[in-house]
């Protein structure tokens, strides 16, 4: 091997030397855990519908139950074990969003309820709300411009 002098060569060398994540195993775990979480959601949804609730209300109930479940498992220090095993399987469903709010809430409790819990709660989930809400407003405005010329601005 030749001595490495440039940062570019060193980066290439490091990329080669660094261990890779076991991507196949990770994807398999993410697939079945993620699928399972969604299926639990679907079962709750079907129960709500069978009881005569409409689509939107059922969807909201599904979100709230899954979020509550995720918060509960996070409090019991179980969610991080599921997360380590399943990766994106528990991160990408709404459970991951809930975990990203609950985890810093618990962690920053020692800095007080206002500047600790209240403010650090959004360190990870804040960007999700910022980009999600902002882009939805842009979508709404685009819709207004292109599809709804007949509607009068209120």
């Amino acid at each position: 091997m030749q001595p490495i002098e440039t940062t570019k060569k060193y980066q290439e060398y490091v990329d080669k030397k660094s261990p890779n994540s076991p991507i196949l195993k990770n994807c398999f775990n993410a697939f079945w855990v993620g699928g399972l979480i969604c299926t639990i959601g679907q079962i709750i949804m079907q129960i709500c519908k069978a009881r005569g609730l409409d689509e939107a209300t059922s969807g909201t109930i599904v979100s709230i139950i899954l979020i509550a479940l995720s918060a509960f498992l996070t409090s019991l220090n179980i969610f991080n074990k599921i997360g380590k095993f399943a990766g994106a399987g528990s991160l990408v469903p709404i459970t991951g969003f809930a975990n990203s709010i609950v985890a810093p809430s618990i962690e920053y409790k020692s800095e007080g309820y206002v500047m600790g819990v209240g403010s650090k709660m959004f360190t990870i989930a804040g960007p999700v709300l910022v980009f999600g809400i902002s882009s939805s407003i842009i979508v709404g405005i685009f819709y207004l411009i292109f599809n709804a010329q007949g509607i009068i601005l209120s």
């Binding site: 996070t74 997360g83 380590k84 399943a86 990870i124």
Partner: peptide, 17 residues
């Protein structure tokens, strides 16, 4: 972890390196 990375309760995967 709290200062440099993520809260301990966060369900993320640590990279192999």
């Amino acid at each position: 972890e709290k200062q440099f990375r993520f809260p301990l309760e966060l369900g993320n995967q640590r990279p192999q390196s």
